[in-house]
Design a protein around this nucleic acid. Structure first.
Lengths: 245, 245
DNA sequence: AGACGATGTTCACATATACGAACGACTCTC
DNA sequence: GAGAGTCGTTCGTATATGTGAACATCGTCT
């Protein structure tokens, strides 16, 4: 398999997850690529606009990469029906709402709607990737998977202490299925609570809609869960899906 | 320069701009790449999650590409101050607002806020790329460039009939500078009007904030231009920038 | 049904690419 | 101010990769 292509996308991932622009040496060190090779690949990526290079020779993700990535959302028409529901939720509750899907053992955030208050940026950023088992949206996704699949997810995610964790997770996922919503009480980010409910289309689960808010955020828990469940149900219905329970 | 890397990203761009998933043959035809080579590269991209392949062997942009692309927005901290302004605009006027920057001869849409009405999806999608001279956001960007740079943009964008078009464009950009906002009356998409105003940070222009709406959309033109200009001015001020005029 | 056409996949060879080393630029330290 | 260390860049060659042709597979048409 073409190593240079793999390396190129690995470089893109590295630059994406980095907080700030990275120098060539860092890229080489992290990915164990010889200097000259990394230099060549980066030159190509810069030439195509997928990577931007500052005057001090540090590299960051370029505009073309953004354009290409955005196409993924457009491709799955789902966002067109989910986004308006997020808009309603955020306007009604005045808290951040988002839509995430399950990928591997992680929840990936695809869409976000923030209330128009400047200041606190909540953890869930678009394109962010968090372990599914510690997020409300992740739990809502996991709850509708087969038991053995859940086991696989948890095994990979938690590492050693799996037997106890697995029982806990199963018990929580049972609750999620029964209640129709999942919660995250500060597991992903301290002091931030989340509530999420699953979305389905005709071919099965399509991620989950959720909200994030600070503990003392006004709206009652009942109001929040009700509205989140309603939003997810509306999206599901518009997508031609059906909640199996 | 490493051709395989360049080809890989060209493939990503092709898949991104395609309406639906593309078969291998189409990719080869469009980019003039031999079958086996394209196959190899695509296999690598699929393996890394940057491309998804359906059971019918058609390729589309993958989730990893989305994650990477999203990082571009996070990197430029600008979005954190622009997004709340979009949220306010859309809530106040109940129309779509967006933020775009100039790239080459095009305006690229980075951020969008839709009112919570399902149905009409306006033309400006996130990651979309439109010729700068036919969009309101593009004009607001062009208006603050040097005259010769504008000339270059227009020359490339319009092709042959440049002398007359150039005079028109310069006259319009003069109006934009004087008024502090730009408009698009159905040039980019039929029946859709746009109003935009430029945003600046300490190092210069940082794109433009704009709104899109159908002609019969309620709010008065004055209200719209005023609020768009105020939003852009607030963003500029928060970014530590200054409108040169 | 059979054959044709189009498409995706595999394989061995020519070639473009990855690599190590040497070079040059820059910064920090003493 | 000199030296050493770090970093980015260049260059020539061994090697991994791109390539075309052959093979396999599916769908379509007569």
């Amino acid at each position: 398999m073409s190593t240079s292509v793999v390396r190129a996308v690995r470089i893109l991932e590295l630059l994406a997850h980095a907080e700030k622009p990275l120098p060539l040496s860092r890229v080489c060190a992290e990915l164990e690529i010889p200097k000259s090779t990394a230099h060549n690949i980066l030159a190509s990526l810069v030439g195509e606009g997928f990577v931007e290079v500052s005057e001090s020779a540090t590299y960051s993700i370029g505009l073309k990469a953004f354009e290409v990535g955005a196409a993924h959302l457009r491709a799955t028409g789902t966002v067109g029906v989910v986004a308006p529901e997020l808009a309603r939720l955020t306007r009604s509750l005045n808290i951040t709402s988002h839509w995430a899907i399950l990928e591997g053992t992680d929840a990936v955030y695809l869409c976000k709607e923030d209330p128009p208050v400047r200041g606190i940026q909540l953890a869930s950023a678009i394109g962010a990737r968090l372990p599914a088992v510690i997020t409300a949206v992740g739990k809502s996704c996991l709850a509708w998977l087969d038991a053995d699949e859940v086991e696989r997810h948890v095994a990979i995610a938690t590492g050693v202490d799996r037997s106890k964790a697995l029982a806990d997770v199963h018990r929580e996922l049972d609750r999620v299925r029964a209640a129709g919503y999942s919660t995250d009480d500060g597991e992903a980010a301290l002091g931030i609570q989340c509530v999420a409910a699953p979305v389905f289309d005709m071919s099965g689960p399509r991620g989950a809609i959720g909200v994030s808010y600070l503990r003392d955020s006004g709206a009652s828990f009942d109001t929040i869960t009700t509205q989140v469940r309603e939003a997810a149900a509306r999206a599901t219905s518009l997508l031609g899906g059906r909640n199996p329970r």
